[in-house]
Amino acid sequence: MTNLGSRWRFRLRENLQGYRFLLPWLIGFVLFTAAPLAQTFQYRLSNVKVAVTGIELTAIGWQNYTRALFTDPTFVQLLIEYVIETALSVPIILIFSMIIALFLNVPFWGRGIFRTIFFLPVVITSGPVIGELVAQGATSAPQVASSTAVAAFVGQLPPLLREPAHYLLSSFILILWFSGVQILIYLAGLQKIDRFVYEAAAVDGASAWEAFWKITLPSLRTTTVINALYTIITLSHFSENKVIRYIHSRIYDVEGGIGYASAMAFVYALALIALLMATFLVLRPRARE
């Protein structure tokens, strides 16, 4: 009995010490995440008016939601485009960053230079910079998007594919530029694979090609899941993202702007979470492995 009591007291002491380190985060979470979330919960069901003294809320039920989903044609359109563009970009970014990481993982002369180049976009990817570069046509695949043959080819595509094809061509470099951190994560994943596994496979007569499919790719499964989730989140939070720009443009509407923007932000968050869950279900490690 005393033994159990002293053990419990020991754990309590450890928890008290540990939570002391977490105290700033707990306060911050309540003040800057939980409380604002609760506040927007109220905004979403209200008509919010900003007055000099504070804000005035008038309950209007689900009107903000029905407006976002059924009345406003722009929001739903942008939301669909966002889902399609994200679904297109993520596989490209993942495959591309995996290939680059595989290259950078083998020693060769000048590796440092190439590493520097490939991590460069991490440093300079900001909304206005990208905006300027896109406006000047510096982010489309050089000479490809502008050539008449490609334009004619895209024009031939069924309307359903035309938009995505155009998106891919016009922002090809932009998509690749989002791979910086993902390359790092893949590199870290590659370095964790035991070198002896490759040697054993080589002794058994496996070619490099087979080793890639049978050893490297399965070992990178968790890393791929992390990368996919990370990519989706960064793309969705990027300040040039069309949905985000639209939500932001509504905030300062005089008539009910805040309530409406809050409702849209919530729908957007749900869409993002649905995307993340779908990705996770597709990529998750199978139980058998």
């Binding site: 977490l22 995440t33 927007t40 985000i244 923007a261 932000a265 968050a269």
Partner: peptide, 29 residues
């Protein structure tokens, strides 16, 4: 470094702060 009670909940909440688009919290802030 500490065996904390409710650590998995803490991780879930930390992940949530990363996932939730800032647009959801920025207006009240």
């Amino acid at each position: 470094r500490y065996r904390l009670w409710g650590k998995s909940i803490l991780f879930a909440l930390i992940f949530a702060t990363f996932v939730i688009p800032p647009q959801n919290t920025v207006i009240p802030q």
